[in-house]
Amino acid sequence: MISLSRLGAIALVVTTISLPARAADPIKHGFLATGAETFIVDESGKVIWKCPHSSRDGWVLDNGNVLLALSKSKAYPGGGVAEIDKDGKEVFAFKGTQSEVNTVQPLGDGKVLLTEAGDKPRVLEVNRDGKVLAEVPLQAQTKDHHLQTRMTRKLPNGNYLVPQLLDRVVREYDPKGKIVWEVKTPHMPFTAIRLPDGNTLIGCTLGNLVIEVDKGGKEVWRVTNDDLPNKPINDAWGVQRLENGNTVITSHHATTKQTKLTEVTREKKVVWTYTDDRKSGIHHFQILDAKGKPEKNPLR
């Protein structure tokens, strides 16, 4: 006869038997890509929107329209910015007045930030009527306009964070154009992102690396091809820090069937990549959620 206490022990053993753990769902991302080709793909990799213009920077807005920094062309000889709806119609446009426009950022209340590269490099804020609301001169070399600035961003404190490629420096300017902070970089900086803790995340182009520096400019984190299998970084231009703490990096020089985007954890583990058949790489990007919406507080 088996005692009640023995039955209890058997029952306990049975209830502790577990099934094999279910594998975590693979990471998927939709995103807006800017560069020689401008397009949006969903999480399956299907193109759901595209634009005929070559672009430098861009944002999917809350209304579903796309705000772009446009490369120079016949229609935009000095580059420009445009907001384009789902049907491809321009609902707002501003033409650059110098050599190039390399940045765009929506500021709310209909205002837009952009940078102009040229003999007088500057940050502009304009409204939807094309009126210039703010102009901030930048201290940058003028020999090579193309390598003056890239992904400039207005900060919550009202200042501007500006990567300056050929100068190999990231600078923070106040609204009057005074430099209030700067850090030298190991290679030409393309993207500079001020993180909530005050650190700055920087994509360093042909150095094939991304660094994070603290308020004093000390490097506190770095990821390079030496940290990653198959060396996927090929010209680290665009960078985005996701809400989960992971970092997504472009490979601008990647071509057909090569890795265009790589997501790494803080521990430098690759958890997602994107590859396609396009010959051109991705200049910059914006990661989107499953519904094609941007993150609430995108760090890019």
Rank of each mutant, 00 (worst) to 15 (best):
E116I: 02
V126T: 07
E125G: 08
P137C: 04
G130D: 12
V162L: 06
K143F: 12
D144T: 05
G108V: 01
Q148V: 04
K120C: 02
T142Q: 11
P137E: 05
D129S: 15
M151N: 13
A117K: 12
N157M: 10
V136N: 03
G158H: 11
V132W: 04
K111H: 14
D144F: 05
H145G: 05
P156L: 08
K111C: 04
P121W: 06
G130Y: 10
N157S: 15
L124E: 03
Q141S: 13
E135K: 15
R128G: 09
P163Y: 07
R153T: 15
K120S: 14
T142K: 15
E116M: 03
E125R: 12
G110D: 11
K143M: 13
L114N: 00
G108E: 03
P121Y: 06
G110Y: 08
K111S: 07
R150H: 13
E125Q: 15
K111F: 12
V126W: 02
Y160P: 01
T115D: 09
V112G: 02
V162I: 14
P156I: 11
P121F: 08
A134C: 01
L133H: 09
L124D: 03
G158S: 07
Q141H: 10
L124A: 06
V132C: 03
E116H: 01
V132L: 04
L155K: 09
L155S: 02
L147N: 08
D119N: 14
V123G: 01
G108A: 09
